[in-house]
Amino acid sequence: MNTKKTLYALFLGICLSSLILWSSDDPTASPSAEPPTETKETPFDLMMQVLTHQRCVNCHPAGDRPRKGDDSHITRALGIPRGNDGHGLQSISCGTCHTTENNDYSGVPGAPDWALAPESMTWEGKTRVEIAEQMMDPQRNGGKSPQEIMKHLTEHELVLWAWEPGIDAEGLPREKPPVSKKDFITAVKEWIASGAIIPEA
């Protein structure tokens, strides 16, 4: 069997099995039915959709090298380690390649204070509850109060860069988080104002 045929069979298989899964999930639904009304997402949901997006997680990685791109890959050759202050090593640092703004000629992204989050703020591989707990824990968040966290999330230029991520080296726009900047800021403020309650799951 040639590869194309294999892929075709695989594709058919996937389609078929998803159909079965989907129908077993909801036996009453039919393909022609109206899409179900969206359940209202809480401010926490909206905020976490952003914080778990690769635009954020890439700079809160596990390990000490940044992840890159929409597929969060590690470039073995280019991964500058975090270093003592999150800005890389003594001689080769984030600023060797990144400036305070995106560079459309090269596709190298940039924003003020381009850096990796400290190790205590690793998000990669964590659940949204774990991320939230860690983010609000002064032991691990650099001694920040909820108000300071709110300020970081809603005003820091590096965080807000997520909505102006620029183009990559092939000239293609980078993916933005699934929630708009405005809705994100509103959600963060609401969540903090209402006591920053972290749901159980």
Binding site: S91, T96, T99, N103, Y105, S106
Partner: peptide, 15 residues
């Protein structure tokens, strides 16, 4: 690679 104010910078991506 060049030096800008003593720091190394990759000038192809430096406006």
């Amino acid at each position: 690679t060049i030096h800008v104010d003593g720091m190394q910078v990759r000038s192809c991506s430096y406006p």
